[in-house]
């Protein structure tokens, strides 16, 4: 095991490249890797293909800041704060390519990549226009039973970005509470960057190895960023900052408002 603690700036500049497929951890506004998202925006990464199921501010910010070429998603929304306006504007203008899924099919596409497979079968997509228009889904017949199934193409992340609770300096990561499919995203990717609330002693990891949710073998860089999910929540540490999400939602009503938001909260250097 090697030490893999880096700064936010180093981790993103070394391991996120223009054109990468980036799987993003968390769901809704729970454990979204917002510090990493802000750093990606600050470094002006381009042409990313972002992947996730039910995403919010993280996707909307990357899209609005012009970092994104393609989006594989099942939903992008700010929930009670309304439509994700950057996503909506760029999608309506045709500025981003959309790869629309159901939660299960986009997760299955990552599962296929983790297994080194070009596709996996998935049930239940038939009859929908999501299936009809998708370039990632097609009908196949089971060679053993003759059952009709949808095949979903693998999505192989170049890099996965996650915010988690704890890790040691070698990258043994503990996610507490809602797991989502973050460990799967790490297993599927070539590289994984994890920001954590706390760096813990390596001996603590060895004392309770069953609590390690992502072993170091999948982790490329660990960054110590307390409040790294803000304004999203992090189970057991803090709830989401609804006042701030409201401010974000209001600011994104116009592209100018969003630019002002970025100046104030992202380019000014807050991690």
């Amino acid at each position: 095991m090697e030490e893999r603690l880096l700064s936010l700036q180093e981790a993103v500049s070394r391991y996120v490249h223009d054109g990468d497929v980036v799987a993003v951890g968390g769901v809704g506004r729970n454990r979204s890797p917002m510090a990493l998202v802000r750093e990606i925006v600050r470094q002006g990464k381009k042409d990313l293909h972002i992947v996730g199921r039910e995403k919010g501010m993280d996707f909307d910010m990357l899209i609005g800041a012009g970092c994104v070429r393609k989006v594989s998603f099942a939903l992008v929304s700010l929930e009670e704060f309304g439509l994700a306006m950057n996503f909506r504007r760029k999608a309506q203008a045709g500025d981003i390519e959309l790869d629309e899924h159901a939660c299960n099919s986009v997760i299955t596409s990552i599962r296929a990549a983790a297994m080194g497979l070009p596709f996996l079968p998935v049930k239940g997509m038939f009859g929908s226009d999501v299936f009809r228009v998708s370039k990632s889904l097609t009908e196949i017949t089971c060679p053993f039973t003759g059952e009709r199934l949808a095949a979903v193409r693998a999505i192989k992340p170049d890099v996965t970005i996650i915010h988690a609770h704890q890790a040691d300096k070698f990258g043994n990561v503990r996610i507490q509470g809602s797991p989502f499919e973050d460990a799967l995203k790490a297993r599927a990717a070539d590289r994984t960057i994890v920001t954590v609330e706390e760096i813990i002693e390596h001996e603590e990891i060895r004392a309770n190895p069953h609590l390690t949710t992502i072993p170091y073998i999948y982790v490329t860089a660990v960054v110590h960023v307390p409040q790294g999910a803000w304004p999203a929540s992090c189970d057991g540490y803090y709830e989401s900052d609804r006042e701030h999400v409201q401010e974000y939602a209001s600011s994104t009503k116009t592209p100018e408002g969003f630019q002002e938001y970025l100046e104030k909260y992202v380019y000014s250097g807050r991690s």
């Binding site: 199921r53 039910e54 998603f73 099942a74 939903l75 992008v76 929304s77 439509l83 994700a84 996503f87 909506r88 999608a91 309506q92 629309e100 899924h101 159901a102 939660c103 299960n104 099919s105 998935v122 049930k123 239940g124 997509m125 038939f126 009859g127 929908s128 999501v130 299936f131």
Partner: peptide
């Protein structure tokens, strides 16, 4: 452009 159906397509099936 609406948010998308999340798990709708799968679960309705």
């Amino acid at each position: 452009r609406l948010p998308g159906g999340a798990a709708t397509t799968y679960f309705f099936g």
